[in-house]
Write a protein that binds this DNA or RNA. Structure first.
Lengths: 207, 207, 207, 207
DNA sequence: GATGAATGAGCATTCATTCAT
DNA sequence: CATGAATGAATGCTCATTCAT
């Protein structure tokens, strides 16, 4: 007769830490970091205050952990979708689709990530900026060939991000705030076409 | 014998109220609405707590006053710059220029306006949304002729704002946060060209 | 007909601030600064937390205010009792009497003053040390003539305080802690005689 | 065949307990008992929280153990130095020398011992008092002969401790706090002479 | 004996807001 | 209108202690 399967305490074991993170994400997304209280997180996560502080040290610490995870997750998606495309147009389309798709899939994380950074604490700010810069550079490398081939326009470097992602970003903010009713699927189509038109040297040539 | 001219208390009167608003704007812009305290405003404005409450009732009240003023000021500029242009391209250029120009001129107000609305209080939120919508509609009327003439592309209505202003908005956020070093003048040129390309039916035709 | 005497609001007016100080003194003396809570002070003083913080800023701030007052009060008494005595012996007697007398009269303040300074906060520490040093110097000036006349022994400067006040201090600590039952009056007599014997060049010569 | 020698885990065993005590002493001496945290002790001792509690039960328990050890060590030194001296003067000198010498040798323990007892917990207080009283009585027995012989003055019993040890105690407090720069060696000489003068019936007679 | 995650009561402090003068 | 003392609910965080492994 086989031993009974070990009783798994689904309440506590499988990661207090991530339960806290999940709860914090929900709460932060709902009310904003500053307005969210540790008590909110505690109730939602079923953890004790002490436990929360044991793992994260500060409210800011929770936010920072969430931020790091969110940034990496978001950029991994962006970069994956841009890599290995056969044409510049498809690459651009992939980026817009990845951005909007990611936001639609993980609205809480998106809301948290794209709201205020001020509240995460300036200490973490620099780290975040560097992380973002590194990710952006990786992405930029993927686009480089198309610049060299004269398919994409040359612009002051700092303007690529606004041009490429600005519309999608603006759409996303409105969509996350419930202030727009256009479906992600539609937005992706239109916005990536527009991005292509504004970035391509010759938008009508498709190779 | 004529009544003596009213004694004007140059110290307090000439504008306690606007002194408070100015102080609040500075503080809100620096630390965000939530993190800013009435005490901060008091120190900067040289007014007393009581006086602040006399004029604005609540912290939210100050923010709301500032918001209303900011929105109207911003949109007035946008609409003025869009009105009476001879061509669609110039209209679009005017809008981008107005947006970026305004932000460069009033960075504090811009920072305040374009950060979180969450914190102003949901009560005011609806009012703000309606105000914005009304302004936007006015602007849209100005563009209508170009749509009818087939100069500008037809898109789902909700996407015009992201397409038109998204890049400028994204640029502005970065510029306000000191995360980009491209000059407003340059940004205006490039971004308005890009906006034109993405919105015009035939970007190369200029009339 | 004389104006009616102003109504004195004995509850609030006559000095919230000193009510708080008095309460804090009692509480600090009873449980020590660290163990005492703001809540204790609040209950005893009938003030609100906010009011306490409005006046003192920090728990440490209350302790510092109390400390400054205590030190000055104590030293004023010491110096007054040492001034203008006709002989060295009487001067010394006056000092011991003043020390023990003060402690017997204001045991709470004494307990507070002579317990731990660590807890007042290192920021204030230096200020306290300087204040004490200044007072001590004043006192020392009063004793100078007797040194010059060869009535009092010459010793390394730092040892006068221990020799003069050490026994009284030790007695006081025990008395304040309820660990000794000898009356202040008796202690003063014996300890000042002993101090005289240990400091006088010729204890039997009285002039 | 003899049992193999027990494996001694030189890392942990040989004295977790005393490592904890040593760490606690350092920490208590530095910040005071109340301000010191178990976490401080844990870091310094390289032990785990659980281990600390396993050995001492409570924070108070650590303090009590340290206290008991300190008191016994201190008094053993005092009594050893007072025993078997040939004259009253030498006995008194021995006591002062022992007190100051001990403090100079074990400043941490001294700081801990002579600071606040309040914080050790009233439960232990009585025990400590009794222990001290017993030690003091032992010491007193050693001095008795000199009282009977009329070499030392008769005083109210409670005043012997202040007179004998008060100056040394005061000196010690200042020395431990870094507030005096006179060397222990010098202090011993001067303070024991003074003690002799204040306690001897005829200070000039030396036998 | 050792470990460290978990607990939760307790605390100092902040801050929007009120109100008597 | 102005002033600033007073209020007290709310919050982030600490820390001694417990306990399953």
């Amino acid at each position: 007769m086989p031993a009974p399967p070990p009783v798994i305490d689904i309440e506590t074991s499988p990661d207090r830490k991530s339960a806290i993170l999940a709860a914090a994400l929900a709460v932060f997304s709902e009310k904003g970091i500053e307005a969210a209280t540790i008590e909110d997180v505690r109730q939602r996560s079923q953890a004790s205050v002490g436990s929360i502080y044991h793992h994260f040290g500060t409210k800011e610490g929770i936010a920072a952990a969430l931020f790091a995870h969110g940034i990496d997750d978001y950029w991994a998606r962006l970069i994956a979708s841009a890599a290995g495309k056969a044409s510049a147009e498809r690459t651009i389309h992939g980026l817009i689709a990845a951005h909007i798709g990611w936001i639609a899939e993980k609205p809480d994380l998106a809301r948290f990530l794209f709201s205020r950074r001020q509240a995460v604490g300036q200490a973490y700010d620099e780290a975040i900026r560097q992380r973002t810069a590194a990710h952006f550079k990786t992405l930029f490398e993927l686009l480089k060939p198309w610049f060299k081939q004269g398919v994409l326009r040359r612009l002051p470097a700092g303007l690529y991000a606004p041009l490429l992602m600005g519309p999608a970003q603006e759409y996303s903010r409105q969509w996350l705030g419930g202030r727009i009713d256009i479906e992600p699927r539609v937005a992706i189509r239109e916005l990536s076409q527009a991005a292509w038109r504004s970035l391509a040297v010759d938008p009508d040539r498709r190779d």
